[in-house]
């Protein structure tokens, strides 16, 4: 993995007719990285991916890949592979011919096609299925054919659209391992699009969180999970107690609340996960509104002057009664500091 950008998007603006889907997006990706585009539907992640593939021409901006400007290079000449969410296998062709499709278009010698397809199918564990038609395969198998079909082309970048979302839990784990293995073995630069934070956290080297056609935050899974920088990202990765900060004070339901300790001036908000809330002691008072048991933990919903607070405690501790008064603390040193509170 070198530090020079391998794929870069520069001031990329993408539009469908008059509707701008992505605006002035800047992003560089290094060779061999596994990057996730994470965001809710409509955030522009799929649109961005389609523009990298060449299926959508940018309204403005540039896309550079491996030192060349590919903004105006047509999709069939970009060396970019895409595994579609629906897999998009050719129903009239056998598994073998599906995988061979691109190689035949390259007019490679038959012996080479044969050996590359065989190797490709072997690597996804489908050697025995080469004579089948896609309709005779399960969803997971179809996806692996689609993966092999893209990989035998030795693309510079492999794009995957929601690669795990159509699979059941067991296959999801299998496919995740499969993708990581392929990425490690071939060193291909991979970008996948997902709306599932768990998928992004577990699979990616780096996550690009998108919202409303713009990048909200870029970071490692640890960065995104532990140090979200905006209210949206904090909410997206499971911070349930999120407050704006104004003039060093917490802006809550009943007016500003002083905080212990000082905050950097650019702090726009603070966010706590339920398990970061201290229960049983602290400067704040609340009432237990409800509780839910989830095996290893108990989650409480508190009615407080700050508003509703979600807190979590080890289930080994005694359960707190609904209706009882409780002291709690929101420790500032544990909180995620948000720089953007839009």
């Amino acid at each position: 993995m070198s530090d020079a950008p391998f794929l870069s998007l520069e001031k990329l603006t993408l539009a469908y007719g008059d509707t701008v889907a992505v605006k002035d997006l800047d992003l560089s990706i290094r060779k061999g990285e596994l990057v996730a585009f994470l965001g809710p539907s409509g955030c522009g992640k799929t649109t961005t991916m389609r523009s990298i593939a060449g299926l959508l021409s940018p309204a403005s901006g540039a896309i550079k890949l491996d030192g060349a400007d590919i903004t105006r290079v047509s999709a069939n000449k970009r060396s970019v592979g895409l595994v579609f969410q629906s897999y998009a296998l050719f129903p009239h062709l056998t598994v073998f011919e599906n995988v061979a499709f691109g190689l035949r278009l390259k007019k490679l010698p038959a012996a080479e096609i044969e050996s590359r397809v065989t190797a490709g199918l072997k690597s996804v564990g489908l050697s025995n299925f080469s004579a089948r038609k896609p309709g005779e395969l399960s969803g997971g198998q179809q996806q692996r054919v689609a993966l092999a079909r893209s990989m035998v082309m030795e693309p510079k970048v492999l794009l995957l659209d929601e690669p795990l979302s159509n699979l059941d839990a067991r296959l999801r784990l299998e496919m995740r391992t499969e993708l990581q293995r392929v990425q490690k073995e071939t060193g291909v630069t991979m970008i996948f699009v997902t709306h599932d934070q768990g998928e992004a956290l577990s699979l990616a080297d780096r996550i690009v969180v998108m919202l409303n056609g713009a990048i909200e935050q870029i970071g490692t899974p640890e960065d995104i999970y532990n140090r979200p920088i905006s209210r949206f990202v904090a909410d997206f990765v499971g911070f349930e107690n999120i407050f704006a900060v104004e003039g060093g004070k917490l802006k809550a339901g009943n007016g500003p609340i002083d905080l212990s300790g000082s905050l950097p001036p650019d702090t726009a908000g603070l966010a706590w996960r339920p398990r970061m809330v201290t229960l049983g002691s602290g400067p704040f008072q609340g009432t237990v509104r409800g509780a839910s048991f989830s095996g290893s933990t108990r989650e409480y919903l508190l009615d407080t002057p700050l508003g509703a607070i979600k807190a979590e405690e080890d289930a080994a501790l005694a359960a707190r009664e609904t209706g009882s008064a409780i002291a709690f603390d929101l420790p500032v040193e544990k909180a995620a500091r948000l720089k953007k509170f839009g």
């Binding site: 060449g54 999709a75 970009r78 592979g81 009239h92 079909r149 082309m153």
Partner: peptide
Amino acid sequence: RSDIEEAAVLLGSSRAGAFFRVVMPN
């Protein structure tokens, strides 16, 4: 599905080629 045409294009086929190679047979 229309995405098989896009798949064909990304595998190196032209738009017209995709029509004859993957739409027509189906």
